[in-house]
Every structure is written in structure tokens, then in C-alpha cells.
């Protein structure tokens, strides 16, 4: 879907991105993470040609983007930034309709699309359609920002620390909505963050950058169980590593089928971290597990949490 081949970008004497090669597969939720100044935004902004590389080739859906008109390329991609950048003089509806308008969609189709997106992002269409951005809270503004980026049904969505400025509860809600949108639409998402918890919660694959170089690329589990070096271990957080490790695996993967245990059952889709919390809270080392429909599946033992991942 997107590939970088030996891409370098310098700002004066500073090399912001250094000979980077990276691919993002179709349908992936790819998170770019790294310390501040590591070049994450620069990488993202090269994907929609807001920045031109000094060397190397970037392909999107097989095409060398240097050959495309920047405006055409950008209209095919959604772009969400931390400071949102809603147009303050336009209503929510007109903001969301910006790209469809640029593409010349018919009125009725634009209107339906706006309704659909507001609903998807949990904003009441009738209440918010005509509102101006300053009438919305920070979380609502970023919901509109995401809706605007999704408006023209882009194949690719670029997001640069979209939720970093929000309070933890709003951030959690928007993360859940992004995960749901990714599952529902299958859009390829490239998501920049400096928050490892956010990366582990959302990513299907993570790319870790430092000083413009790729340090490691892999699934959340790869990153946790097989960190490439100390920088990655630092990023994961040495002290909380165990909890993070538990957070990326679900209860279903460690359940002993057929066993039973007393008490309210855990959901099979819950994380092992949530399971540990439930055991500590209830003072037990065993809990029953139920599937999505509430049917008993088996039991989870505290000892199972201490095993390494199944490598079967």
C-alpha cells in the first residue's frame, strides 16, 4: 500500500529521516512511535507530499508519488493532526464536506455522507451539523476532524498524534472508535504517537523510529517479547513491561477449555491485564471465562498468566 525505499530528508544540517525503508500493507493499522524529534511527523508528511524527500522513493498503491500532483494525492488520503485545524468559519457540515466538495460530489450524496459520519463518530447529526467549531469541546472537534478525513472514503488515513491533546477519558473513547472504524472499513491507517500504551492498544504493526532511523518493526507482541535494543525497552517502560505484555493478549488465548471456576465470568475478549486486575480485586487465583454470547468456555488460572506466550 505504502512503501519507503531508502528515503532521506534533511533540514539544513539535521537529518530528520535517514535512509528509511518501510512498508505499510493494505488494511494495516500501522503505528509510528518514537521520542519527540525522531522524525515521525516528517515520515507521515512525506506520505502526502507536504514534505518532499531529498532522496529515495515513496510509493502509494504502487505509484511513485513524486509523479502525482500533490493535490490529487492528498484528496485520496485522509489527514488528521493533533491541533485538528478545523476551518473556524465553516460549520461542522461544511468542514466534513470539504474534500467531497473539492472532488465535486453531488449535494445529496455529500449530505448523506455527513450524516453517516457524524453518527459513526457518536455526534448527533441534527444537533451538530450546523454548529461552528468554537461551539464544540476538544474531543468533539477531533471527532469532526476524523470525520472530515474519512469523508471522501480514502484508502489511507494519516493521523499525527490525533488524540495527544485530549483528556484520558476522551482519548480512550476515541481510541475505541478508531479501532472500530478500522475493523469496519478496512482502511489502511498510519498513526503517529509517542504513547506506547496507545500504540499497543491500536496497532496491528508498530514501527519504532529514533533519530530518523527505523529501530524495529513488528506486531505489538514482537515489540514486547523481543525488543531490538535498550531504546525499545526504554520506550516500552522497563517497570511496567509486565503489565503491558499482559495488555496485548486476550483471555481466550490462555483459557483452559472445559474447566469451571466460581464467580462472575471474564469475557473471552478481555485482556490478560484486565483478568489480573479482576483476580486481585476478588482475591482469587481462578476465574471462569465466557464467550461473546455469555456461554461458558473454561477457566483462567493465575499461573497461566506467568507463562511466556504460546509459540505453538
Amino acid at each position: 500500500m505504502i512503501s519507503f525505499e531508502g528515503v532521506t530528508k534533511r533540514f539544513g544540517a539535521w537529518t530528520a529521516v535517514d535512509n528509511l525503508s518501510l512498508t505499510v500493507a493494505a488494511g494495516e493499522f500501522r503505528v509510528l512511535i518514537g521520542p519527540s524529534g525522531s522524525g515521525k511527523s516528517t515520515v507521515l508528511r512525506m506520505m502526502n507530499r507536504l514534505i518532499a524527500p531529498d532522496a529515495g522513493t515513496i510509493r502509494v498503491e504502487g505509484e511513485d508519488i513524486a509523479r502525482l500532483k500533490p493535490e490529487t494525492l492528498r484528496r485520496r488520503m485522509g489527514y488528521v493532526i493533533q491541533s485538528v485545524g478545523l476551518f473556524p468559519h465553516w460549520t461542522v457540515e461544511r468542514n466534513i464536506a470539504a474534500v467531497p466538495d473539492l472532488l465535486g460530489w453531488p449535494r445529496a450524496r455529500v449530505r448523506d455522507r455527513v450524516t453517516e459520519l457524524l453518527t459513526l463518530l457518536n455526534l448527533d447529526p441534527e444537533r451538530y451539523r450546523g454548529a461552528y467549531p468554537h461551539e464544540l469541546s476538544g474531543g468533539q472537534q477531533q471527532r469532526v476532524g476524523v470525520a472530515r478525513a474519512l469523508a471522501a472514503e480514502p484508502h489511507i488515513l494519516l493521523m499525527d498524534e490525533p488524540f495527544s491533546a485530549l483528556d484520558p477519558i476522551t482519548r480512550g473513547a476515541l481510541q475505541a472508535e478508531m479501532a472500530a472504524i478500522h475493523t469496519a472499513t478496512g482502511t489502511t491507517i498510519v498513526f503517529v504517537t509517542h504513547d506506547m500504551d496507545e500504540a499497543l492498544a491500536l496497532a496491528s504493526r508498530i514501527a519504532i523510529l529514533d533519530r530518523g532511523r527505523l529501530v524495529q518493526s513488528g506486531t505489538p507482541l514482537d515489540i514486547l517479547t523481543d525488543p531490538a535494543d535498550d531504546r525499545v525497552r526504554d520506550l516500552v517502560g522497563r517497570e511496567e513491561w509486565g503489565l503491558k505484555r499482559l495488555a496485548v493478549e486476550t483471555v481466550a488465548e490462555r483459557t483452559r477449555p472445559g474447566e469451571t471456576a466460581p464467580g462472575d465470568p471474564l469475557a473471552a475478549g478481555a485482556s490478560l491485564r484486565q483478568a489480573l486486575a479482576a483476580m486481585v480485586a476478588r482475591g482469587t487465583d481462578r476465574l471462569p471465562v465466557a464467550d461473546g454470547q455469555g456461554r461458558p468456555m473454561g477457566a483462567l488460572h493465575l499461573a497461566d498468566l506467568l507463562r511466556g506466550p504460546d509459540r505453538s
Binding site: N48, L50, P70, E71, T72, L73, R74, R75, G78, Y79, I81, V84, G85, L86, F87, P88, A98, V99, L102, G145, R148, A149, L158
Partner: peptide
């Protein structure tokens, strides 16, 4: 706002 406008093409 400028960045968002450029980013959307």
C-alpha cells in the same frame, strides 16, 4: 488550519 487545508488537497 493551513496544514489541514493543504493536507486535504
Amino acid at each position: 488550519v493551513r496544514e489541514a487545508a493543504r493536507g486535504m488537497g
